[in-house]
Design a protein around this nucleic acid. Structure first.
Lengths: 163, 163
DNA sequence: TCATCAACTTGCGTTTTGCAAGTAGTTCCT
DNA sequence: AGGAACTACTTGCAAAACGCAAGTTGATGA
């Protein structure tokens, strides 16, 4: 056996990385909200994550290779967090989580719009989004389609409709 | 706002149901291992779940509508746990978790075979599997294809090859 | 009748979570 | 130049969750 965890089952190993109440929330905010710094993640988080929990999760996620931490050239003290290929490949998982949540919980309308779009788009949209994330976070070339923009537009439209 | 949780985001709401180290492990064992009773879930669990944790998770999952608990007609004291439509619809999520785990962790060979098969099969296989689960757990008509059997055969073959 | 099984429960020590407050270096503004 | 504001955390402490081991209650089966 090659690992120290509870078992070598891939589902279990995924849960050992991500099976808590906050890790995927942080990744979601970086991924869909493009929050790239500690302060942004803390102050704009919808669920009110505590500062010590956020600090702990950022540290763990960096150690696990799910986030990268780089100094901000324009601000000596600031750090910029980026997704890695491993966390970019969580897009389908998060899309499914959103889709399941829409079907089996009572989400708010505004916050569901993006999940709906992501579900309807299917694997093709997810791939386009992942390419865009590779551009935004890994320095890959900029793809033509901006799924990010589409999601943001849909969200803002829903927010406006709420009056 | 319609719910009492942290936010109305569907990803967050899904995490509030399933975001811990054990809930999805229990569902996995019922789903892929066809463990249907407390004792079976406890004694055959790969990760060594503690009895009180299992009892607590079963209670919560039943309350959340992710499992059904029914008395066993052949044994007055025994209970049979079944998946619900809501938990059957977690198949794509668990398939993605397995696929991600294979790519980004170091799973053991034997326990990866099913996850690989599930990934290769894609949505078509997932749908067939979900139909079979509806038969096994909800009393729906028996489908022709037995994905369950295919997964079990692949797993047993891998176990045999291990020597 | 009596060992065994099935499904939990209980006690208790450890770990994780979460709130509130504090710290230390950096940059902005005047 | 000097102070307010920003940035990224840390610390203290109480509450909740986790996890191990042992105990409980009621059925079954020989």
């Amino acid at each position: 056996m090659s690992q120290k965890g509870r078992s070598g089952c891939p589902i279990n190993l995924t849960l050992e990385h991500l099976g808590d109440r906050w890790s995927l929330i942080v990744i979601r905010d970086v991924m869909f909200g493009n929050r790239r710094s500690y302060g942004e993640l803390l102050s704009r988080n919808e669920e009110g994550i505590a500062s010590n929990i956020l600090a702990d999760r950022l540290k763990r996620l960096v150690e696990a290779g799910l986030l990268d931490r780089a100094p901000d050239p324009s601000h000596r003290q600031k750090a910029i967090y980026s997704l890695t290929e491993a966390s970019i490949e969580l897009v389908p998982l998060l899309a499914h989580m959103g889709a399941w949540g829409i079907r089996h919980t009572r989400p708010s309308r505004e916050l569901s719009v993006r999940a709906e779009l992501l579900e309807e788009g299917g694997p093709e949209l997810w791939d386009a989004f992942m390419d865009e994330l590779r551009h935004l976070h890994l320095g890959a070339p900029k793809p033509e389609r901006s799924v990010f923009g589409e999601l943001r537009a849909a969200y803002e439209e829903a927010m406006a409709e709420r009056e």
